[in-house]
Design a protein around this nucleic acid. Structure first.
Lengths: 117, 117
DNA sequence: ACATTATATCGCAATATTACGATTAAAAAA
DNA sequence: TTTTTTAATCGTAATATTGCGATATAATGT
């Protein structure tokens, strides 16, 4: 009988990594596209909060911006307050703090010691 | 005559973003997969430096690990010292410092002030 | 009711990423 | 010289991501 592990090609094997590693990877995804970096920077600068303003500032179609906002919302880094017919987006402080801690932790863990030199 | 802008589907429009935004996105990609997070953590812990050791520790095929190492090398976060027939990998301090600055800068720029509350 | 406004979602096209077996390459050991 | 060891690369399969036009949705104004 075979209950062999089957690898589904093209899919990240999240099961073999720790919760922390998967979470860091997910948080990093938020910053892994220049459009999302730009959106986060705009939200922090508070110049644009409403989705339409972001569409104006970025040279991307409304559907594309909406999709990036959805991804940032899924990760938790931003929240959207519905104010019909507009939606006002902003940074979600607790998750932003989580990202700060997570990246800080891993980035500070390297003390400049390399093994091959 | 039409020299209209043609969007190549599926490709990030890097031209419309700043150098800094594109670089942050690229650096973030290094952390945007749990396997690469695990590799970086292992390299920092110095338990495994040789590619084969990483393959043993991670439950991934040698070809897969090699591919992730190649991506980390492309971004610049790690370097590989050839020591035939082995290759010893380690963190690349200047680029690691660049990542520390880049993430620190954006993560600290949010002062807890949101526009919709 | 109907038009307007702002955003989300759908569907599609195309490239990017992930994973791995098989093969190649390069140096050391036999 | 042949074998062994270690890592890179190739080729392939499959899912993920990116981008956008078109459409749907939902509340407001007329």
């Amino acid at each position: 009988m075979f209950f062999d592990y089957v690898c589904i090609m093209g899919v990240t094997k999240t099961e073999i990594f720790t919760e922390q590693q998967n979470r860091i990877a997910d948080l990093a995804k938020a910053f892994a596209h220049p459009a999302r970096v730009a959106i986060l920077q705009l939200l922090i600068a508070r110049k644009a909060c409403v989705c339409g303003d972001l569409v104006d500032e970025l040279e991307l179609a409304q559907a594309t911006v909406s999709q990036h906002l959805k991804e940032l919302k899924r990760i938790g880094l931003i929240q959207g307050e519905i104010n019909p017919p507009r939606v006002c987006y902003c940074i979600n402080p607790p998750v932003w703090e989580e990202a700060r801690q997570a990246f800080g932790s891993i980035l500070e863990s390297f003390k400049g010691v390399t093994c091959c030199n």
